[in-house]
């Protein structure tokens, strides 16, 4: 193509797609730029992921001989009552991790509806972001102490005359999971609030004025201006919080270890337990794959909702 022979239109199309020397060189350059990142990604994510798929078809204790069992592990994950209730726990955590921060965030954002300027603004931002900065493990320890029998929660209940309600929250069969949920909500609350507060400042204020001239009540303003305007931010909050609920590990590991019984056991921790304590590598891997798929299934509609705006 570069020899300069006059070329006619009759030349087959496919021939034109052959790269010239320059575009071939350009492609090599592109490959060189992407290669380091791709190598790291391939070796430490793609390869393990493929191995996970492979392990999930095995019955293997991690040491001895592995036996191929096909989809048996998946059948176990999806039928074993314990494992199902563990997966259920993860979805119950979504209620706390996602719903509380998003609703509270929306309330604060629509109350402020403007920039948080000045010292008060900086102070709020700093304080609300603290839980994002500390390790989740530290949040777990802090709240283990809050929920302990002599902890602040019980102390406050007693102070308002509800001494009967006091208990060791994280050791309680009924209340341990909600308590873990509260920890997650506490961690994610600041982030969601700040995202929504920032998002609401991007809504054109004249929209509110127009709505008010059209006779909108505060509820209408919220429903027809704020909510649609925050669609993307809400999408982000829900995505982030749902992932951290479904894939939670650190908080549960520290606060309850999955107990009492399996009332607070979540898939992430169960994978760890199965693979490294019970030496059921195949089952752990099947649960890992199921967890990955569940996260994808849970997020896809949220992404759709958030994108629709464009």
């Amino acid at each position: 193509m570069t020899d300069g022979t006059p070329l006619t239109d009759a030349r087959p199309r496919a021939l034109r797609l052959l790269p010239t020397g320059r575009s071939r060189r350009a492609r090599y350059t592109a490959i060189l730029f992407v290669l380091p990142a791709f190598t790291a990604y391939a070796v430490f994510v793609l390869a393990p992921l493929i191995m996970s798929l492979y392990y999930s078809t095995l019955r293997w204790d991690g040491i001895g001989k592995a036996r191929f069992t096909g989809l048996a592990n998946y059948v176990t994950v999806l039928t074993d009552p314990d494992l199902l209730s563990i997966i259920g726990n993860a979805f119950e955590l979504v209620l706390y991790f996602t719903v509380i921060p998003v609703l509270l965030g929306l309330a604060v954002a629509s109350a402020i509806r403007g920039h948080m300027a000045g010292t008060f603004g900086t102070l709020t931002r700093t304080v609300l972001f603290l839980p994002q900065v500390i390790p989740l493990v530290a949040a777990g320890i802090a709240w283990s102490w809050m929920f302990a029998s002599t902890g602040l929660v019980n102390q406050m209940l007693t102070a308002v005359g509800l001494a009967d309600w006091t208990r060791g929250w994280l050791g309680d069969f009924d209340f341990a999971l909600p308590a873990v949920g509260i920890i997650g909500a506490w961690v994610l609350l600041g982030l969601c609030t700040m995202l929504l507060v920032t998002g609401i400042t991007k809504i054109d204020p004249s929209l509110y004025e127009a709505a008010r001239l059209d006779g909108a009540r505060p509820w209408h303003e919220f429903r027809y201006v704020t909510l649609p305007g925050l669609r993307q931010e809400i999408g982000v909050c829900v995505t982030v919080t749902v992932i951290s609920a479904l894939a939670s590990f650190d908080i549960v590991y520290i606060a309850t270890g999955g107990g009492p019984g399996i009332t607070t056991m979540v898939p992430g921790l169960e994978i760890y337990r199965l693979a490294f304590a019970h030496r059921q590598v195949g089952l752990a891997s099947a649960l890992a794959i199921v967890l990955m798929v569940l996260v994808l299934i849970a997020i896809t509609p949220v992404q759709w909702y958030a994108r629709e705006k464009k």
Binding site: M1, T2, G4, P6, L7, R11, R16, T20, G21, S23
Partner: peptide, 17 residues
């Protein structure tokens, strides 16, 4: 990129330069 034909700058073929 030039898909086809000759492109010369100062008597030098530059398609691939």
């Amino acid at each position: 990129e030039t898909t086809s034909g000759r492109l010369e700058i100062g008597d030098r073929l530059v398609n691939d330069v």
